[in-house]
Structure formats: C-alpha cells, structure tokens
C-alpha cells in the first residue's frame, strides 16, 4: 500500500496552487485526500506531482451571500453538515454532507474535493444539482462559473479544465423552501447505492416547484424531471399521493448500474422509494 514516487508541493496561495498544477504534466490537487490517497496507495493513480491545498485557509467557509449561501471548496463535510445557514432547501446539502462516510472522512474530506472527484455514487453531487448551485472554478485564466447541471459529465469526469480548482459554490435557498437527502447506503463502502436529494418550493402544504436528483444509479447525478412535474401542484401532506407521484422515478432512468452491489431493477425501484422518502422527509 505504498504509492509510486511523486513531487510534493504545498502552495501558500491560490495563484501558486494553479501554477503548480499547470507547470508540468500529471499534477493532481490534494484536498482532504479521502479518495485520492487510497487511489495512490493502490497505485491506481500515479500523479507526477501532488499539490497540497491545505494552506489555502480562505477556501474554508460556509457563509451567507446575497440570496443564498456560499460554501468554500476546502470546507470539510462536517462543517457543511453542521452549518446553521443551511436551512430550508439548504437541508438537502447539509444532509448529503452528513451522509458521507464516517466521522473521520467527514472531518478530513472536503466539499470541493468530493465534487471535483465526481464519484458517480457520491452524495454531494445530488445535493448541488438539486439546489441548482453555481460552482466556482479558479484556473490559469482566473475565475469562472459553472452551473451544477453542466458540471458533472460522467464517472469521475467534470467540466473543470486542466489546472482549474473547484474553489466553492453558491446556491440560492428560496424563501420557505424545504430540503432533504436520503440514501440507501452500500453496506461496505457507505456510498449511495441510490441517493435522492429533494428541494421543494412550497405554498403552504402545496408544492409549487420540486427539484429532485438521484445519485448512484448511473455515471453522474441526474434530475428526476418527470417526478418533479408530478409533484408540482401536489399537496405533500398526502403521503399516498407523494408515493404515487414518485412511483415512476426510477423507471425512466437509462443506463442504470447493474453490478455486484445492486441490480438495475433494484436500483430503479429504490430510486422511487428514496424519492418518496426524501420528499416526505423534506416536508416532515
């Protein structure tokens, strides 16, 4: 369990970090290391250089911004999970962060690290997608914004360009909205066999607009658009109606994973179950 040799640099600023990432071939950014270190030890990743971001303290925050909340890329999951700013629809993100791994992982692993790694079974991608977050990338050409819906391209693939770091995200939390994240946990890895995030804009007990996303079923997190439409205008106090509205959530998914950990049929069925539970939990 020893990695192959690599250069190791610890930049003091974001600019230095970006430079260190672009100077030579095969540089990788190291944030909390909760995914990267196991890959290094198994030699599944063999970067020529590791750029350790641990001194970039300015990227560790959850703060209120105009119309919503901003989260820094180096914020540990535990701080996202415990943030008092993530209320209403923002609960989807807090609960997704709380559902990651175990205590040690949540204290070391980072918000930006998890999103940039884009594991297809990770929890956070579902939440930022449901919140329609704006992700902030910083690279050689400065800072740019990427919509969450455009960010996740496939398994471990994102819209980040070479040398770009995911430095944070900004998301609106509509007034009176509700949110939740629930998952069926894979018993070995703790990752989502199926995870669903729900962000619901409400008029009293009636759902005005629903945003539902699923992770774990395919190569990237997806919006459950048909279910969102079925929930719009529905009274969410009626558990049976919610169940009915969510019952088709999994059926419409394409290219669902079918493997040792769960058949496609089971994952589809569980998508509907988790969608129902996410909605009921959000309004419960």
């Amino acid at each position: 369990m020893l990695p192959s040799a690599f250069d190791y640099v610890v930049p003091d600023s974001l600019e230095e970090a970006v430079r260190a990432l672009t100077e030579g071939p095969d540089a990788r950014a190291l944030a909390g290391g909760q995914s990267l270190l196991p890959l290094l030890k198994l030699r599944l990743a063999r970067p020529a250089r590791l750029v350790d971001l641990r001194r970039l303290d300015g990227l560790r925050y959850v703060r209120k911004v105009d119309g919503g909340v901003a989260v820094g890329g180096l914020t540990p999951h535990a701080e996202v999970a415990g943030s008092t700013l993530l209320v209403g629809g923002g609960r989807a993100l807090a609960e997704a962060a709380a559902a990651i791994g175990d205590v040690q992982v949540r204290n070391r692993g980072t918000f930006g690290g998890s999103l940039a790694h884009a594991d297809p079974s990770a929890d956070l991608p579902a939440a930022v997608l449901a919140l329609e977050a704006t992700l902030l990338a910083h690279g050689p050409d400065g800072e740019r914004e990427i919509r969450a819906g455009d960010f996740f391209l496939g398994p471990f693939a994102t819209a980040l360009r070479p040398g770009e770091l995911l430095v944070g995200a900004r998301m609106e939390i509509p007034e009176g909205s509700r949110g939740a994240y629930v998952k069926l946990r894979h018993k070995a890895s703790g990752f989502a066999l199926v995870g669903v995030a729900a962000v619901l804009e409400m008029d009293g007990s009636t759902c005005r607009r629903a945003r539902l996303t699923v992770t774990g079923t395919g190569g990237r997190p997806l919006r459950l658009e048909e279910t969102e439409e079925a929930l719009a205008g529905l009274s969410l106090e009626d558990g049976r109606a919610v169940r009915e509205a969510c019952s088709g959530a999994g059926e419409v998914l394409e290219d669902v994973h079918d493997d040792l950990h769960g058949s496609a049929e089971y994952r589809r069925a569980m998508t509907s179950v988790m969608a129902t539970r996410a909605v009921l939990r959000a309004v419960g």
């Binding site: 894979h186 018993k187 070995a188 890895s189 040792l260 950990h261």
Partner: peptide
C-alpha cells in the same frame, strides 16, 4: 471481486 473494504461488508 470483493477484494477490499469497499466491496466486502465488514
């Protein structure tokens, strides 16, 4: 295929 703690559920 269950050769690690990611796959073998202790």
């Amino acid at each position: 295929v269950t050769g690690s703690l990611m796959d073998y559920a202790v």
